[in-house]
Write a protein that binds this DNA or RNA. Structure first.
Length: 427
RNA sequence: GGAGAGAUGGCUGAGCUGGUCUAAGGCGCACGAUUGGAAAUCGUGUGUGGGCUAAUACCCCACCGAGGGUUCGAAUCCCUCUCUCUCCGCCA
């Protein structure tokens, strides 16, 4: 959510940001409502001041035995007027809130202008895609023939876009989760969090998933709970409606969670394999930062996510997203893309963003350094560290052998109980 | 799921027979005085949002879990909801 004061004082700046976003939203209505609201508020507050003043005198008048019927009649009229005005103001508030919640964040000045992913800028490429002396297979074929991924059974027990992992596959998934968490907590100073996988509506609104993107989420039918699409939601909302001590910043959390996404609107895309699932595992990195530090924090956080890919020996590249391709709440985003032989291209495996005060304003997360200071909004950041299912896919494809067996990356061997390869299929 | 109790400022805790509550007292915290320095003591201050502003100055408005209602006037009375605690039942 943007600051209404910012929109009021520099409407052109906001309008320009919306153009950069390729958004057709219009802020004129919002500005008109804001003006109207302040006019009514000014009048109503004057009446309330009078009401308070008269109320203060009533006990004395009564004590003196004065007749108060005339005053009460007059005050009744004022009271009714105030109620009307309050109703009007709260209606305008509601309307403004609705509008404000649909305005995306302002892109940072370092974000390149552009309409879609073709305008994203490659920052660096790490590791080189392997040259295969044989025809590499896709992970869904490898996984099925090795008996470690079972899409048909998942379809039976749940539906499309679910996977059953078995044997070494299930263990690999678990090994990667533990490896990610251990690496982040040990090397990068994150506090591990294990959050609820369902959250309430306020939390989903706080981080920007609601109200605009309700169709992307799974909602629990009999409660107003939502299955989390990412651990970003519960973890960022841990500090909702709090004023943090500035000395504690930055606060860094990493959290494993299952993630649930309806994938509305992506029918027919990535239908095979682990790439696009209704449920997947992810380790998420979340930071709460001082405003002046947040872009340094973004670089650090991105480096933390890159680190696990480097340790796994997976080739990847870092993309700076352009203004038209960024997520709704983000001011600046780097995507990490891992090399996926079956796709013959790089595929997103992590998205690292600085939201500046956009989420903090929605979720009301502030900090101050001392009693004298005025509380100000923190900056929030998060990034996948990284998506687990896609990591499994990348490992299967990049570490496959001609006979269909899979080498286990060195760093994962301890997590696999010493297993160095997933042996080829027996059948 | 059943029965009961409760939710007040950073914490504790009064108020809850509606009107100096414009929220007492205590603790904590900040600043100052005192001191060689500290403790103790004394003094002053101590939240959030909004309006007005050059202003994080003054002034005004709102906020006693959330949302409604009654009233000239609500922390206080009424209704709904949420959460917490105690007991019972069920349960991994």
């Amino acid at each position: 959510m943007l600051d209404i004061k910012l929109i009021r004082t520099t409407p052109e700046l906001v309008a320009q940001a919306l153009r950069r976003r390729r958004s057709s939203l219009d802020i004129d209505l919002l500005l008109a409502l804001d003006k109207q609201r302040r006019e009514i508020l000014f009048e109503a507050e004057g009446l309330k001041a009078k009401q308070n003043e008269v109320s203060r005198q009533i006990p004395a008048l009564k004590k003196a035995g004065k007749d108060t019927t005339a005053i009460f009649a007059e005050m009744k009229a004022i009271s009714d007027t105030i109620k009307d005005m309050d109703t009007k103001v709260s209606q305008i508030d509601l309307q403004m809130q609705e509008l404000l919640l649909t305005i995306p964040n302002i892109p940072h000045e370092s974000v390149p202008d552009g309409s879609d992913d073709t305008n994203n800028e490659e920052q660096r490429k790490v590791g080189a895609p392997r040259k295969f002396e044989f025809e590499p297979k896709a992970h869904w074929d490898l996984g099925e023939s090795l008996g470690i991924l079972d899409f048909a059974t998942a379809a039976k027990i749940a539906g499309a876009r679910f996977t059953v992992y078995k044997g070494a596959g299930a263990r690999l998934e678990r090994a990667i989760i533990n490896f990610f968490l251990d690496t982040h907590t040990a090397q990068s100073g994150y506090t591990e969090v294990f959050p609820p996988f369902m959250v309430n509506r306020n939390s989903m609104t706080g981080t920007g998933q609601l109200p605009k993107f309700e169709e992307d989420a799974f909602r629990v039918a009999n409660n107003d709970y939502f299955l989390i699409p990412t651990a970003e939601v519960p973890v960022t909302n841990m500090h909702r409606d709090e004023i943090l001590d500035g000395a504690q910043l930055p606060i860094c959390y990493c959290a494993y969670s299952a993630c649930f996404r309806a994938e509305a609107g992506s029918a027919g895309r990535d239908t095979r394999g682990l790439i696009r699932q209704h449920q997947f595992n992810k380790v998420e990195l979340v930071r709460f930062s001082r405003p002046e530090d947040s872009y340094d924090q973004l670089e650090e956080l991105t480096a933390n996510a890159e680190k696990v890919l480097q340790l796994l020996g997976l080739p990847y590249r870092v993309m700076l997203l352009c203004s038209g391709d960024m997520g709704f709440s983000s001011a600046k985003t780097y995507d990490l893309e891992v090399w996926m032989p079956s796709y013959g291209r790089y595929v997103e495996i992590s998205s690292c963003s600085n939201f500046e005060d956009f989420q903090a304003r929605r979720a009301n997360i502030k900090f101050k350094d001392s009693q004298q200071d005025k509380a100000q909004f923190v900056h929030t950041l998060n990034g996948s560290g990284v998506a687990v299912g896609r990591t499994v896919a990348a490992i299967l494809e990049n570490y496959q052998n001609a006979d269909g067996s899979i080498n286990i990356p060195d760093v994962l061997i301890p997590y696999m109980g010493g297993m160095t390869t997933i042996p080829p299929s027996q059948n």
